[in-house]
Write a protein that binds this DNA or RNA. Structure first.
Lengths: 256, 256
DNA sequence: CGCCCGCTTGAGCCGCTTCAATGCTCGTGG
DNA sequence: CCACGAGCATTGAAGCGGCTCAAGCGGGCG
């Protein structure tokens, strides 16, 4: 998906550039940059590139120029199979980095599209590499971000490999909730920016299955959902539903 | 999985260090290092650490010290779910790098185990970062390797998300075949180093399903398989089987 | 040689998909 | 302003692909 949480808490205010709440701000603090280094860094940032809903940031095959951090909004990254089937690789929100998968070949392998009107801050990849040589802390931080992306992908692989449909949806909801919370939004009430189709593709399920499971979670009071507006009624219960495969089995299937 | 193809062709001979066919050799050529830089680089390599079959290179939770390139042998990387279910993240062979997912947190999140007696070359991650600052080309190459790992993971996510069981197994066999060829081994006849269980976990299938599909591919002359010894009879036909979902559907299901 | 672990194969079942119909919402133009 | 339509969501019924459970086999290693 090429998107990744950059830092644990985003409350850090780094007011030295003219871009309030700039997505790259969060790079300076954890990377422990001096103010001179931060200045050098900020000078290379292309601030606040807007992107309208349902417009592409890039298509697969386009050459990599810049990496982007999301300033506000929501993006979806997806890959088209050789025979046309589409797999959603991930959803990116504020503070997350897009484009990491393109570094290897210099070309994007994914499409990225805005799910709502969004704003990005970009940096040319060549600039980032150059800065990395003179600012070791930045280099180190960049490595961590890339590694975190690999870890995230591994989590999704595990989800797709071993989890049941209900577990996948529960995991997805909890993950969204967590990310909204971390950004200061409500982790309880939020609006899903993507369609059931998108969720299904991401989780390796059909859209009807996603819809049914959401309805089911609604019926058993885990959540309350109306179209795209969702309220998490019990994080606890959702959590228990994940990894409940053995527990549930013993009550339903072991009746043999 | 933290494993990745380092270069397209491995025939490049870089004889300047005493470690014949060292896994890190392949870093010097594509990274275009000068001979001085190669010397600095080679001086930091811990050469030829052996690891016996079924021994762990590391367990999840262990602190990251070094990244390893496989010199010879075969490794399996896997992650245990919170409730004990295991997901195989990947299989690594000669020339591939292990440990990238640990950079983010400084701790391994995966277990790595040798599927056969293997030999590794390691470099302390701190050394690699240090060298990266003085040798830009090395840094650049390292970024490419990390990005390639992300790309590889995306491919697996797509496989797990959209492919049928037969397509997954066919993809797996073709991928192995390709990697063996690229290393100068036969891509037609080879021995699977992992169990059906391992393959199943990797592909999100049960071992019985893997076994059945291999038997089926055997019956229809796509491959010839006897326990772990396999011969690819027709790469072409295996390729067609992938992405045959629409084609096959129209002949079998559209009979409605 | 014998045991154990891994592989194969079969039968039946369940979870998810497929196909289909209907409802809801929002944007657009008359 | 409302009527309409397109796209998204919901829900039902039926089918199938892969899973579960179970038994038998074979090969390698002690």
């Amino acid at each position: 998906m090429s998107t990744v949480r950059l830092v644990g808490s985003l409350q850090s205010r780094v007011p030295q550039n003219g871009c309030p709440n700039c997505g790259f701000d969060s790079w300076c603090v954890p990377a422990n940059l001096t103010s001179l280094e931060s200045k050098q860094f900020n000078d290379r940032i292309e601030h606040r590139r807007p992107i309208k809903r349902s417009k592409h940031l890039h298509l697969a095959g386009a050459p990599l120029e810049s990496l982007y951090v999301i300033n506000s909004g929501f993006l979806r990254t997806s890959m088209a199979d050789s025979d046309g089937r589409e797999q959603v690789m991930g959803f990116s929100m504020t503070g997350e980095l897009v484009g990491l998968d393109a570094i290897g070949t210099g070309k994007y392998l994914c499409d990225s599209i805005a799910l709502e009107d969004s704003s990005l801050c970009g940096m040319r990849y060549s600039d980032l590499e150059e800065l990395g040589h003179t600012i070791p802390a930045l280099q180190h931080h960049f490595h961590q971000v890339m590694s975190a992306e690999i870890t995230r992908d591994h989590g999704i692989m595990a989800l797709l490999g071993v989890m049941s449909a209900e577990e996948r949806v529960a995991t997805f909801l909890l993950n969204l909730s967590m990310r909204f919370s971390a950004r200061g939004y409500s982790g309880i009430n939020f609006r899903l920016p993507m369609t059931r189709q998108d969720i299904g593709s991401y989780l390796g399920l059909k859209l009807e299955t996603v819809s049914r499971i959401l309805s089911h979670f609604n019926n058993i009071q885990f959540i309350s959902i109306n179209q795209r507006d969702i309220e998490i009624k019990s994080i606890q219960k959702l959590r228990q539903r994940i990894g409940a495969h053995e527990t549930t089995c013993s009550s339903t299937r072991r009746t043999k």
